[in-house]
């Protein structure tokens, strides 16, 4: 390959039951506010603690949903490298993540396959938890190269069936 050295996970490297490397991150107010503004989410419960406590009844400001999607994407592509191409993600919100929490992302491969167009994919169940209590779950499917010359990003139209 002519690409610079970087993670390059192949479809054949992955089996059902494989675990993704855990990602633990200490959340601060800056994490929450930076994430909200990066996602252009100006709603006050993501930057104004008085509003969050007195109007939302939460203990503090909390991570917004679109920014959590960005965290899940990072968690998956840290594992796959740049050739991993997300096909779909399904999120379920169970609880909030606050400053002072250490959020921990864990993921496990639940299925793998190659579709009728020859595109290799893996399905992953991911949860972000605080003190082992899941706050958001994500079922993701990501395309991976079937060999060193394959690139899922080359697929278009009928050859991309996410």
């Amino acid at each position: 390959m002519s690409t610079p050295a970087t993670t390059h996970l192949l479809h054949g490297d992955v089996a059902v039951g494989d675990q993704l490397p855990d990602l633990a991150y200490p959340v601060t107010s800056t994490t929450v506010v930076l994430g909200a503004l990066a996602a252009r989410d100006w709603r006050p419960m993501h930057h104004d603690k008085d509003f969050a406590v007195n109007r939302n009844g939460t203990r503090d400001i909390f991570l917004n949903t679109p920014n959590q999607a960005a965290w899940f994407e990072r968690f998956v592509t840290d594992w796959t490298g740049p050739y991993g191409r997300l096909q779909r993600m399904t999120f379920r919100m169970l609880g909030s993540i606050f400053p002072g929490d250490t959020m921990v992302f864990r993921g496990v491969v639940t299925d793998t396959g190659v579709d009728e167009t020859g595109c290799g994919w893996v399905a992953i169940d991911i949860a972000v938890s605080v003190d082992d209590d899941p706050k958001t779950t994500c079922k993701a499917r990501v395309a991976l190269p079937v060999d060193a010359d394959d690139n899922p990003w080359d697929r278009k139209g009928d050859r991309w069936q996410p």
Binding site: S2, T3, P4, T6, Y25, T31, L34, G35, L37, A38, A39, N67, A70, W71, E73, R74, T77, D78, G81, P82, Y83, N151, W153
Partner: peptide, 24 residues
């Protein structure tokens, strides 16, 4: 800004050479 907010170092978003080769 978004990649920075989640510390996403995927070279697709930071390295033009990787982006050219992988995603055109």
């Amino acid at each position: 800004t978004t990649c920075s907010s989640v510390e996403n170092g995927n070279p697709l978003f930071w390295d033009e050479q990787v982006a050219e080769v992988v995603t055109g």
